[in-house]
Nucleic acid binder design. Structure first.
Lengths: 211, 211
DNA sequence: TAGATTGTTAATCGATTAACAATC
DNA sequence: TAGATTGTTAATCGATTAACAATC
């Protein structure tokens, strides 16, 4: 019953592709249009939809608007998601300033840092002392956190987050985190992405074959 | 013969874990120590090593230093990797300022942007006009690029990169890119990571079961 | 109707895990 | 030797793809 990560990531891709198709004036799509637009196979599209009980019309495909509503509902886009960031270095600043989250209903409501020089309560998105994370998360009922602190601090911060009600973390620190059973951690490791690329670029240049 | 992405990502994880173990004074590891440290199974560790012809000693495990050398060689860490960034917004600035890449042999050598206000040739990492990307990549023989431009510009930029010798791209723009057969694109979509988290947090809170 | 597309089942593919013989 | 660990093969697991009957 619980779907796998890739499947849900594909739903996000469908959603984005549908917005683009919609903007181009399309009203309906067939599974193979959407497959092209999202970079997957038509089989995968129909399988994923079937998994969530989304049905179209044989011969008439899917209504884009209706489809978007269903995907948005599955992905929890019907309400604004409040998110906090721990560690207010360059990366966190970029995330806080990024305009793209807003239109997707993702709102970074506060940052936390140990460095007093970074604190600023009057900001649009306030930067608060790390000790206040606990109370803030509890009071506001925050469920999602981003970890952008150095490796050495990540474990502690994660523990504090989980203890106070955070259920999901996007972790940019290059270290595995211990998470309670009912919580999720998604890892983003930019260094590993680049390292990975280097490997495959070298491998492909050696083999001269397609993947 | 060509290994899969997850396998190579695990090699990066082993490498990082080994550095930590090394720093703690360990000289040897067994597959199950390393598995714990990297967050995988002992079977996976031995399987991965076997895939690359890395062997240890029955009963004595693996020499950490020797292992690190081999992993670093596989991952292309024996030489500095020069990387460029297209789009010098907040995210790119954060990447350029990030200190962690250097010790891993990853060097961002230039940024490119269409906005003249961002240009700066005298910076440690210069920010140049986007039109100069082509010549720069060719002259310097750059193989790896990062795309941090808006969605609408990403396709064009990728095409320019590939045409001029870039073989691998980390793409932060929320759109699929067309890539030549002998090139690779790794996608990082922060919005989808958060969206994904929201889905699983909601799903887990409904089921109250472990994954 | 003929043609095209969905929805679902079955087949395939590949990655992960388990198991265990070899051996230090 | 007895015990523990590797290296590899086989089994399992799950995700993706293909195929096709149902049907608009």
């Amino acid at each position: 019953m619980l779907k796998n990560r890739n499947c849900i990531i594909r739903l996000s891709r469908y959603k984005n592709a549908l917005y683009r198709l919609n903007a181009l004036g399309f009203v309906r799509v067939f599974s193979d249009n959407l497959a092209d637009a999202a970079g997957v196979t038509a089989s995968a599209v129909r399988k994923d939809f079937s998994l969530f009980g989304i049905s179209g019309n044989k011969k008439a495909g899917y209504q884009i608007e209706e489809l978007l509503e269903k995907l948005n509902s599955i992905l929890g886009k019907d309400k604004v998601q409040k998110v906090i960031v721990a560690g207010c270095g360059n990366l966190a600043s970029a995330l806080i300033k990024y305009k793209g989250f807003e239109k997707e209903g993702i709102k970074i409501v506060a940052g936390f840092d140990i460095d007093p020089a970074k604190h600023n309560r009057s900001n649009n998105v306030p930067v608060l002392p790390l000790e206040e994370l606990k109370g803030f998360v509890r009071n506001q009922g925050i469920k999602i956190g981003i970890i952008a602190v150095p490796e050495a601090a990540a474990g502690q911060v994660a523990e504090t987050m989980f203890k106070n009600g955070i259920k999901g973390i996007v972790n940019f620190a290059p270290i595995r985190l211990k998470a309670p059973e009912d919580c999720v951690v998604n890892y983003v490791n930019l260094e590993h992405e680049l390292e990975n690329l280097v490997y495959f670029v070298n491998a492909l240049s050696k083999t001269k074959k397609k993947i």
